[in-house]
Design a protein around this nucleic acid. Sequence first.
DNA 1: TTGGTATTTCGCTAATAACCAAAATACTAG
DNA 2: CTAGTATTTTGGTTATTAGCGAAATACCAA
Lengths: 116, 116
Amino acid sequence: MNEVFKALSDPTRREILRSLRQRDHTAGELAELFVISKSTLSGHFNVLKAADLIAQDKRGTTVTYRLNTGVFEEVVAHLFDLFGQAAPITTRQVTVNQVTINQVTSSSQAAPKESA
Amino acid sequence: MNEVFKALSDPTRREILRSLRQRDHTAGELAELFVISKSTLSGHFNVLKAADLIAQDKRGTTVTYRLNTGVFEEVVAHLFDLFGQAAPITTRQVTVNQVTINQVTSSSQAAPKESA
DNA sequence: TTGGTATTTCGCTAATAACCAAAATACTAG
DNA sequence: CTAGTATTTTGGTTATTAGCGAAATACCAA
């Protein structure tokens, strides 16, 4: 999850995700949407791939990238972990725009020193 | 919103938020939960404050920090922007664990070149 | 005013990250 | 096989950032 938040910290990478949300793009198509170099973009793709936010398909020399929406639920759940109201342990399933989010809140947390 | 994602990119800062979710803490109390120096922690507080993720109250020489849950909705909304299913413009209000989220999805997006 | 406590600021270091141009790799049509 | 295209990797630069110790600031009891 640290990789995900790290990947989301960069505005260019968020724009890449926003573009892929519309539809899959080849590396070249994405390159046309941005003013930065292709080599830099390639580096961004690697970060997003490492965070499992995107996936790639190769066909000949063409690489197509697509959004991996599956991580979305995890991110939201993690945000609940950071911001959610303290409450007794409870599980609530919520459907939002055809996406199902499993929300888990807990009143007990590990000591922060144990992480990072 | 860029400040928010940048603030969330660091694991120590996420732990700070997680601690503040339990209850407000003074700077000293937070310092006891982490192994890093107080000066570094102070720097982290500044990042979180700049992102509006936390607020502070002074009483004498003691500073108390508390979580600003108001930003949560914005972050989730922004995540929908990045990951939400493409759909016609629609507004849907969803209540999740006493938190109301206004979800806005749009089928038209600005060209990424215009941002960052 | 002094001394003590709580906290932040400052100046520095080392690591990381975004950016670039050039080189390399991968693929394919002719 | 060669030439061209699509994309990534490499090596370098510059800026940013997390961490530290020391100094400074803010506050208050004695």
